[in-house]
Amino acid sequence: MNHSYDLIVIGGGVLGTFHAYHALTRGLRVALLEKDGKPQGATVRNFGQVVPSGMNSKWQDFGRESLSIYKKIQADFDISVRQEGSIYLASNEEEVQLLEELANINRSNAYPSELLTQGQCLERYPNLRQDYVKAGLFFPEEVKVEPRTMINRLHRYLKQKGLDIYTGETALECDALRSGVQLYTSGNRHFSATKVIICNGSEFKTLYPKLFQESDLVISKLQMMQTKPQPNYLLPSSVLTGLSIRRYEAFSECPSYREIKAREDPDSFEKKWGVHILFKQAEDGTIILGDSHEYAPVSQISDLGFDLKMEIDDFIVKEAKKIFALPTYEIQNRWFGMYSQCQTTDIFQHTIDEDIHIVTGIGGKGMTGSAGFAKHNINSIFNLNYV
């Protein structure tokens, strides 16, 4: 059977799904191909924090658009979005300075944020250690989601809106013709489309192995943990801490950032493994803790291995205990996620014969930036900016 569409999206993670969403809202006939029974990659292996506050100016615009899209969908269909805000906690005067500078940048960008004193942070956040926190910067508009719940519910929502989703289908061949694209899958299906967008992380190597090997993509491996449910404890928002302040792109635009970074110990454990400490309470009362960053070129992905480095988990828990005296730090789950990102650009984009578009390597910006970026990209690919 020949399945014909205006657009076929390959990859059912957050980046591919939001490309399908925006094409669908523009009245296009769209199919989404997911190689597994349900998404298994980076989308379901992350914190689920939607935090435009951590992005540089360009991506903050996409992230803020994403917030609007998440909230719009949530008002129509429960995809687990909770608007509880995000807070960055400073542990010393350098980090306080960066928070104050970012607050000034936010004012000029008209992005709501609120500087909090040490006392206000301690009042709002139960069991926060007084000997850690010096100040905070709160972003009331930001949301969090349950990643595994969100993406599967989003698929159900889009099916109701007319999206055709084919799971367990690996794209094996994608051929550009004079007009449109022919696509063949592992399920012996034959598709035709006006355009194809490939958003399946590093796995576009199945279709274009030479392009994949020659790309500047690297793979990042992140370790995360989940505590047991916290008895009689509520963490009122997503929490990002001092090491996040020193890592996230938004702070690199602060006037004193470069000087402060230059004073850091380049041989520290957190530098070696890219550790910063995040807290997020899930719907079931557990706390998600993390995370770390270990990198390898796509040609050497096997170097990252399949094992968890317990010294990283132990370090994260030790540092987390310096920040919050949670009722329990007993861990019930540990896992790692892998995502692809570019070394030289902020996202990997490559067009083949005008109608096949590879869009991947969004890195750690996926959950926050995909919805807004995909809207822009669909409008660009289909020349809809002025429609």
Rank of each mutant, 00 (worst) to 15 (best):
residue 124 R to Y: 08
residue 293 H to F: 09
residue 363 G to P: 00
residue 138 F to Y: 11
residue 106 N to T: 02
residue 33 L to V: 14
residue 239 V to Q: 01
residue 166 Y to W: 07
residue 337 G to C: 06
residue 133 V to K: 00
residue 239 V to F: 04
residue 140 P to W: 06
residue 163 L to C: 05
residue 302 S to N: 15
residue 137 L to K: 00
residue 3 H to F: 07
residue 141 E to M: 09
residue 334 R to T: 08
residue 77 F to W: 06
residue 110 A to W: 09
residue 341 Q to D: 09
residue 158 L to Q: 07
residue 338 M to H: 05
residue 97 Q to S: 15
residue 16 G to V: 04
residue 88 Y to L: 12
residue 195 K to Y: 02
residue 90 A to S: 14
residue 292 S to D: 10
residue 75 A to M: 11
residue 362 I to H: 08
residue 92 N to R: 12
residue 189 R to P: 13
residue 314 D to L: 06
residue 325 A to G: 05
residue 156 R to L: 13
residue 366 G to R: 05
residue 162 G to Q: 08
residue 233 Y to V: 07
residue 309 K to D: 08
residue 236 P to W: 03
residue 262 A to H: 04
residue 273 W to I: 01
residue 343 Q to D: 06
residue 350 H to A: 00
residue 40 Q to R: 11
residue 127 N to L: 12
residue 97 Q to R: 15
residue 372 G to I: 02
residue 330 E to F: 07
residue 363 G to E: 01
residue 344 T to C: 02
residue 179 S to G: 14
residue 285 G to L: 07
residue 111 Y to S: 04
residue 57 S to Y: 05
residue 229 P to C: 05
residue 385 N to Q: 15
residue 104 N to D: 15
residue 132 Y to Q: 04
residue 101 E to Y: 12
residue 294 E to F: 09
residue 375 K to G: 01
residue 28 L to Y: 11
residue 178 R to Y: 12
residue 146 E to S: 12
residue 299 S to I: 03
residue 42 A to T: 14
residue 307 D to K: 11
residue 79 I to P: 04
residue 95 E to S: 04
residue 118 Q to G: 09
residue 35 K to W: 02
residue 258 R to P: 02
residue 384 L to V: 05
residue 128 L to N: 06
residue 333 N to K: 15
residue 47 F to L: 11
residue 99 L to K: 02
residue 369 G to H: 02
residue 165 I to V: 15
residue 118 Q to C: 13
residue 324 F to Y: 13
residue 258 R to S: 13
residue 362 I to P: 08
residue 296 A to T: 03
residue 281 Q to Y: 07
residue 119 G to K: 14
residue 373 F to C: 01
residue 340 S to R: 03
residue 315 F to E: 10
residue 186 S to M: 10
residue 366 G to W: 03
residue 153 R to S: 12
residue 63 G to P: 12
residue 179 S to V: 14
residue 103 A to G: 08
residue 86 S to C: 14
residue 330 E to I: 11
residue 174 C to G: 01
residue 169 E to H: 03
residue 183 L to R: 00
residue 360 T to D: 03
residue 221 K to P: 12
residue 320 A to F: 05
residue 288 I to P: 00
residue 278 L to D: 10
residue 60 Q to I: 07
residue 223 Q to D: 08
residue 269 F to R: 13
residue 37 G to P: 02
residue 310 M to H: 10
residue 194 T to Q: 14
residue 169 E to F: 02
residue 241 T to E: 07
residue 295 Y to K: 10
residue 197 I to N: 00
residue 377 N to M: 06
residue 156 R to A: 13
residue 359 V to S: 02
residue 386 Y to K: 14
residue 5 Y to D: 08
residue 160 Q to S: 15
residue 259 E to Q: 12
residue 153 R to H: 10
residue 114 E to V: 09
residue 227 T to F: 06
residue 348 F to V: 03
residue 384 L to G: 06
residue 154 L to E: 10
residue 314 D to N: 13
residue 107 R to Q: 15
residue 16 G to L: 04
residue 258 R to G: 09
residue 254 C to M: 06
residue 193 A to V: 06
residue 101 E to I: 01
residue 43 T to D: 05
residue 385 N to D: 15
residue 305 G to F: 08
residue 51 V to L: 05
residue 288 I to Y: 03
residue 2 N to H: 12
residue 17 T to H: 01
residue 367 M to R: 02
residue 315 F to Y: 15
residue 209 P to L: 04
residue 149 T to M: 11
residue 1 M to C: 09
residue 162 G to H: 09
residue 181 V to F: 02
residue 274 G to T: 08
residue 89 L to R: 02
residue 251 F to M: 02
residue 162 G to L: 13
residue 88 Y to G: 05
residue 186 S to L: 07
residue 21 Y to E: 07
residue 141 E to V: 06
